[in-house]
Design a protein around this nucleic acid. Structure first.
Lengths: 126, 126
DNA sequence: TGTTCCTGTCAAGAAAAGCTGACATGGGCC
DNA sequence: GGCCCATGTCAGCTTTTCTTGACAGGAACA
């Protein structure tokens, strides 16, 4: 497989990613997690925001595949959920948008056809 | 100082761009304009949405620097406002987000310091 | 003049996103 | 047991975004 022509993400996927990142809080969350992985409560204190809120933002980021969380048991037996950023790379250009728009299932009806194409975006890169 | 280390966009700028693109309608608008420049009314008919609405979305996209509009006078004398996509290229990675987050002026007070740094993003590229 | 097509803006309602406080669970530990 | 810290979820309120219909101005043209 020499040089794949970079398929680009699905419209819905890209939309989810862009939506997830288009919020100052979530940008800061990603930024903080880029420095080091952390668990919810601690992160909430670090960036000064309520746990429920942070929890919601994290869920959104995770759904977009930008961060991943794992429930772990610390040394003292405490159950803690650590989050860390998932390596990702999206190139945003008019062409990418144009291609992505072709696979938008929008229209508040529901996924017309869950195109499960293995969008080898470019993630896992780096 | 040879080789600038790719400054990356301002947090606010990137946020504006991501926000502008995180909407199916706006993605389609950019997609449509990528095919060919067009004026508001025609574009509205093409992608089937009301003018007032399209007008608002275009304003948002223009504010983010993703499209540019120019009021022109067609051959028949009609005043028409043509829009076209502005070439842009944003690489979205955890690192970019981390850097961008450092310059977020968020907090609904107002730009604490309009950092007019010539964010040589990478625009005009292509 | 009246019609048509373009531009732009506003008011007001509908929908979605953001945020908070309260509640419930589970496991160490004094 | 009672206290502390962690997780998660819900109901409900606030704020923002989205969307529509109506209106106003400008210029060509029959």
């Amino acid at each position: 497989m020499a040089e794949e022509q970079a398929p680009g993400p699905t419209g819905d996927k890209l939309l989810k990613v862009l939506t997830a990142l288009s919020n100052p809080h979530r940008m800061r969350i990603v930024a903080a997690l880029t420095e080091r992985r952390n668990y919810v409560s601690a992160l909430a204190r670090e960036i000064g925001m309520g746990r429920p809120l942070l929890h919601m933002h994290l869920k959104l980021l995770e759904a977009a595949g930008l961060v991943v969380g794992s429930l772990e048991v610390a040394d003292d037996g405490k159950t803690v959920k650590y989050f860390e950023v998932a390596p990702f790379l999206y190139e945003v250009t008019p062409e990418v948008i144009r291609e992505a728009a072709r696979t938008l299932t929008d229209t508040r009806e529901g996924p017309a056809k869950a195109d499960k194409t293995a969008h080898t975006t470019k993630e896992e890169a780096k």
